[in-house]
Design a binder for these strands. Structure first.
Lengths: 220, 220
DNA sequence: ATTTATTTTTAGATATATCTAATTTTATTT
DNA sequence: AAATAAAATTAGATATATCTAAAAATAAAT
């Protein structure tokens, strides 16, 4: 089963929206996610339905099929592996990789991905801390918690960010709260939800609730 | 000027056929080279003519323009750099690379190609022995200069070291002056020949003359 | 339960890239 | 030079992917 680049992009968006715990994925949601118009989405949903990567009934909504999930995860796997390559090998910054990976993820060559995976040493997480599915679509996801929801004296490791906008990533980089940093919660201010944390056992950092709620931590 | 993937493929074929010393490139030749029908070629030639990458007069034939040559060479450069990557880094056999490189050559990202070039150590030939054009389409290599001989405000990219002892490489790695890093000379101290440089537009670095004179820079 | 608003879909256009079949132009032969 | 062959182009279709504007279906509000 072969998908076009456009179809892959739609399916990936549908997968992500489905995973976000929403009861159903709307045509409008997809249009927003993919920066297109609802009319185009309707058309594409019909096609994806015919290809049986989603179950689609007009006006009723859609559900991604097992086949669809498998294909979406393959694309996500490729995207994240390329991100690792760009950051680890080509010294791209976190916030520079997305656009390029969006293109690279559509390259068709199972051998290429197999070799790339090996070359990168079978990474389990991308530079944003998101898990990389294996070739069968399995993910080893660990339980993660938002930084602002941790208790005082609890420790852990920053593994991902919710908001991966360039501005936010630049900010994190600047204050030294990189993916992989070991942190510990020193204090929480009830009033505004801000937190004080210790980074790598040396630097203390104050963070607003807004910032902290966008940082995901693997508790230890 | 932006070309579509199809246009890039046609232009590349036209460039190759033109280089083969033939007096003129025929519609049929192109159709054969690109595995398509003459009717499709006629259509595309009109479009390429409008975009001024070729000079085209119906029934008379075509000639690739300077602009066309430049764009074709850029695509060829990308194709051959990816081939080097696939063979040198991912251990593809030389006869397995073509198909994948045909896809990779269309990825749009000047930064990616710049970094890839650096990562591969500025190869001059691909695995088939064909020369890799530089970013201007030239096959000749540009002059490199020792870092301590650059002028203030001049920028460039670290491309090699004279002294490649382990100790020196460790030092470079530690301060973040890796091969491929984009640098700019911020200041020079007359007294001892030391320099201050900006690395990747964020980190400033001081270097003694001894260190700087062992670093070779490709000026931009 | 009607009316109103929102969401979704369809109808009809546009743009790219391709094809087959028909036509036109150029080249070759007699 | 007229007839024939070859090459190149146009006309008209098809397929993908998108859009705007209109219509249809569902959801929300009075």
């Amino acid at each position: 089963m072969e998908l076009t680049t456009a179809e892959e992009n739609y399916l990936k968006a549908i997968y992500h929206l489905s995973e976000e715990g929403k009861k159903s994925v709307s045509t409008n949601d997809i249009a927003t996610a993919i920066q297109t118009k609802p009319a185009s989405v309707s058309d594409m949903l019909r096609k994806l339905g015919e290809k049986e990567v989603i179950q689609y009934r007009k006006y009723y909504g859609l559900q991604i099929t097992e086949l669809g999930k498998r294909l979406a995860l393959q694309t996500i796997r490729k995207h994240r592996l390329w991100e690792v390559f760009l950051v680890d090998k080509l010294h791209f910054a976190w916030d520079e990789v997305h656009e390029v990976a969006e293109q690279l993820e559509h390259i068709q060559s199972p051998l290429l991905i197999e070799r790339l995976d090996a070359y990168l040493n079978y990474p389990k997480f991308d530079p944003h801390g998101d898990p990389i599915p294996d070739e069968y679509g399995d993910v080893r996801s660990r339980p993660r918690i938002a930084l602002n929801e941790m208790n005082i004296d609890q420790g852990g490791q920053i593994v991902a960010v919710k908001d991966s906008s360039a501005a936010f990533l630049r900010y994190l980089d600047k204050v030294g709260a990189y993916i992989g940093a070991r942190i510990k919660v020193l204090d929480k201010v009830e009033f505004d939800g801000s937190v004080e944390i210790l980074v790598d056992q040396k630097k203390t950092l104050f963070m607003s609730k807004d910032v902290a709620s966008n940082i995901l931590v693997l508790q230890s």
